[in-house]
């Protein structure tokens, strides 16, 4: 009986230990990927053709979804803030302020990044994963280049260029969504809505959200590329990497968001 318990404990420890080792190994490889990317960025000519191709791909693929998502988020914010201030103060106040601050500083960067993880991040992981299991990644090495230079760098750069643009568009679409509800449901004039925004918002509030986007771009692109090129085991492996790329990107975006916000607050950009 006791021996059984000890055995059980042993195998449990073994399993946990195995997982921990796996996670540490994965983190090591991830760090290695980032290091090689920086090295190749400095060492070799950037493939701007590929960067452009990826920018168009990521942008075109994600823009409709991110714009629509944030438009509706803006609408919800206006509805919520309008009805609660009506409840407390008997009239809808500061809808423009609430919508614009929430969107620009927080919701537009985060929601856009989550949608892009699911859209472009998944596409990247699936594409690179397929290239890995069909030996196309090995072929890159035999043809004088390597996956970091030809695949990872263009995608990371494309993300760093495109995600901020997507997020600025989302800022506007969120505020526009809020305006539609403020106007249609609470009869707030565009003038008042606009003044609620510009009287309170400063450039640093915009930068609070905007600076986050670069961190998110970095996270999503590296995780998706890493999951893609470390794929093993055929079609099933590609499916697994794709799912993991999306899940890890989303979780990392949300967790990092807190810490980035804390840093920005400490720096007074808030």
């Amino acid at each position: 009986m006791i021996k059984h318990l000890i055995d059980l404990f042993d195998s449990l420890l073994g399993a946990i230990g195995g997982h921990v080792l796996e996670i540490i190994e994965g983190m090591g490889q991830f760090a290695f990927l980032i290091r090689s990317t920086v090295q190749w960025l400095l060492r070799a000519r950037v493939e701007w053709g590929q960067v452009l191709r990826q920018m168009l791909f990521i942008g075109a693929q994600s823009m409709p979804v991110t714009t629509m998502t944030t438009f509706f988020t803006g609408m919800v914010l206006a509805l919520q803030s309008g009805s609660s201030s009506k409840h407390f103060f008997n009239e809808p106040l500061f809808i423009g302020t609430v919508v614009s601050f929430s969107m620009v500083m927080e919701l537009s960067p985060v929601m856009t990044s989550l949608v892009v993880s699911g859209r472009a991040g998944a596409a990247i992981a699936a594409e690179l994963g397929t290239m890995k299991v069909t030996e196309q990644v090995d072929a890159l090495y035999t043809l004088g280049t390597n996956p970091i230079r030809y695949l990872v760098i263009p995608r990371v750069l494309a993300f760093l260029f495109v995600l901020p643009v997507l997020i600025v568009v989302s800022d506007f679409s969120g505020v526009l969504g809020g305006w539609v509800v403020a106007n249609a449901k609470f009869r707030i004039s565009p003038n008042v809505y606009w003044h609620d925004i510009v009287d309170n918002m400063e450039i640093k509030h915009f930068f609070h959200g905007f600076l986050k986007t670069f961190v998110f771009a970095f996270i999503i692109s590296f995780i998706s590329c890493y999951k893609g090129i470390s794929t093993r085991g055929g079609a099933q492996g590609v499916g697994k990497s794709t799912t993991e790329a999306v899940v890890y990107s989303m979780v990392c975006v949300l967790v990092t968001d807190y810490f980035v916000t804390a840093i920005l607050v400490a720096l007074g950009i808030t």
């Binding site: 397929t130 290239m131 069909t134 030996e135 196309q136 090995d138 072929a139």
Partner: peptide, 8 residues
């Protein structure tokens, strides 16, 4: 490569 490994 055994399966060609052409860039698709």
């Amino acid at each position: 490569f055994q399966e060609g490994a052409l860039f698709d």
